[in-house]
Design a protein around this nucleic acid. Structure first.
Lengths: 221, 221
DNA sequence: AAACGTTTGAAACGTATGTTGGAGGCTGTC
DNA sequence: GACAGCCTCCAACATACGTTTCAAACGTTT
């Protein structure tokens, strides 16, 4: 682990600290000292802290988006179930991180942070850069949930995203909490299956709200 | 608006800025200048930034927890549905904020931030201080969902919490996104109903995971 | 009107942060 | 061996932050 290059050591350390404490709360000095590299190395290799953050995301998202599009190519012809489409995200994340559940958690945690914390910059960066695969995934979901209006689907996806990122945010501490109470500990992989159940149930939930509206079903195309 | 006391003006401004940018990203100078008070006023009235944050939470949580316990007292005898128990949180939040949906959004947003951002301090503060009503709410939920194991219920509550806080986090920007595409805008109150549908569906979702376990054999259907 | 505690005001303090400049070292090539 | 290019290191910079100080202003009581 001491043989890794400076750039890699910075990225490896930064993604962990960012995920733990957030972007603003993590100083470059904390990163460089823990990584065992010089402070100036960050600005030399990445230019700025902002660019470091983007580099961390790109290292996650480039392989992820690539693998996601590949999988959608293959599965597009097949019959896709809601669970498999939702699970695809987790599956692809897992395989692009080579089965390292901890890095997958970091990945989702960072995604949530970027979406939540940085108000303008990060969100726009992520959207402009990685919108296509996401859009395509959304259209697949639309095919699977024709009973939902566009707005319902839009919000439910965000609810699902929230459940995912939030749950994985405090994964370690939450795991400790749930296990402290009793019984045998729950594995992280099983939590993700529980999450899949929950999200699928939420997406599938009957819409009691829009049924009451006069607008309702007519508002398409 | 300008007649409010210094303390109130600080709290009013702080809760908005904290919700928008987060705790670390919001400086005392930003708060005091926007509130139109002197910088030193924060340390004079609250002692420190940390105490300010806690004061913001207490102003939200004290009436909220009180009203929540009151409502649970009354509804405990009645037959409670899952939707009403989940909706109770939103209802109580709405009425303790006197119908101001914007403040309700701030309230949930701050809760999510406290849970997510501050790694140790805030979480412990909130738990020690407001655990009882939450525990009671949880026991009500347990009565309504006997088919779930303790761990399943634990995680699904957190998933629901995540969906809620995350969704309300980017409420304004998300509302803008969903409305930019088309049609008539969706009101914030309707989003909360959509959220309720989603969360209820998630909590109720059949557990495909534990069915495979030897323990949870219950011969469904 | 005077005295007192309380609140506000402007300025400064110490510290931590992101960033930069320049000296030194390492590894290749001629 | 000398040189060039890339990298590392140390030191410093300017800035922004939370906090403190202390005098002035305020409001109430005597």
């Amino acid at each position: 682990m001491a043989q890794a290059s400076t750039v890699e050591r910075i990225l490896d350390t930064a993604e962990v600290l960012f995920a733990e404490k957030g972007f603003a709360e993590t100083s470059l000095r904390a990163i460089t000292s823990k990584a065992g590299v010089n402070l100036a190395a960050v600005n030399y290799h990445f230019g700025s802290k902002e660019s470091l953050i983007q580099a961390v995301f790109e290292r996650f998202l480039n392989p992820f988006c690539g693998a996601l599009e590949l999988q959608m190519d293959e599965r597009f012809a097949d019959k896709v179930t809601l669970e498999s489409l939702l699970g695809l995200v987790a599956t692809v994340a897992m395989e692009t991180q080579r089965g390292d559940a901890r890095r997958v958690a970091i990945f989702f945690r960072l995604s949530g942070l970027a979406y939540t914390q940085a108000q303008g910059h990060m969100r726009r960066f992520l959207r402009e850069r990685y919108a296509p695969p996401f859009r395509r995934w959304l259209s697949l979901l639309a095919q699977l949930t024709p009973e939902l209006t566009q707005q319902e689907r839009f919000w439910r996806v965000h609810f699902a995203l929230g459940a995912t990122t939030f749950a994985l945010s405090g994964m370690e501490s939450l795991l400790a909490m749930s296990n402290q109470g009793a019984q045998q500990p729950m594995a992280a992989t099983q939590v993700s299956k529980e999450l899949l159940d929950f999200v699928a149930g939420g997406i599938r939930a009957p819409s009691q709200t829009s049924r009451a509206l006069p607008d309702g079903e007519s508002a398409q195309k």
